[in-house]
Design a binder for these strands. Structure first.
Lengths: 102, 102
DNA sequence: GCTTTATTTGGTCATATTGCCAAGTATTCG
DNA sequence: CGAATACTTGGCAATATGACCAAATAAAGC
């Protein structure tokens, strides 16, 4: 197995992994409508603010979101709206799967 | 938090999670060029065949691949080639990230 | 029926993820 | 400076994931 080839898959997997959580998908969806501060997202998600903050740091580390502190608040936004095309791909898989069951 | 809304994100996360592993991405990439039996994939990946088999069952459970036993071998193929559009989205995120560093 | 080849499944161990609470940091305002 | 607000980080317990080996299954051929 070529080392560099596998490294490519690892890099991709890291990004995908960052998206592989319902709360983080909710965050991305929410941010697709504009920037939001942590407390807005926390209210939306319903878990502890520390949990949300950690989810955001996962997304940030993966290069999916950017943060911007303005005063006491920290606003997050999508780094690259292209992640949204993602949802379409995923939904297509889900629909295909459901069609097979029906 | 609406229950049904969150359920949507959970369903999506389940599919994304199934893709969030370098070996499974390699499998998907390989299957994009046609069906493959487990031993072909195993050779490509380089881990134990039981490990590869488990990766395949993860992909199957998520609705990403289909299997077809022919004789002693089991051939896998992509259920929906749309997952491939995925890679483009991911690469775009990675490039965006690297551009920022440079 | 027994053997061989291909694959799946069960068990186990190491490691990673997730969520909450508590404590720490940053910024604003009085 | 001290208090309040917004957020992050550390720690910990519960759970999930991933890899291997060994054992079980499935189909083919003798």
């Amino acid at each position: 197995m070529e080392d560099t080839l596998y490294a490519t898959y690892q890099r991709r997997a890291a990004v995908i992994k960052a998206l592989a959580h319902p709360s983080r998908l909710l965050i991305v969806d929410e941010l697709s409508r504009g920037e939001r501060c942590v407390c807005e997202l926390t209210e939306r998600i319903g878990s502890d603010i520390s949990t949300v903050s950690k989810h955001l740091s996962v997304l940030k580390k993966a290069g999916i979101v950017l943060d911007d502190r303005r005063g006491v608040q920290v606003f997050y936004r999508l780094r690259c709206p292209c992640v949204l095309r993602f949802f379409d791909c995923i939904e297509a898989v889900i629909e295909e799967k459901e069609r097979a069951i029906a």
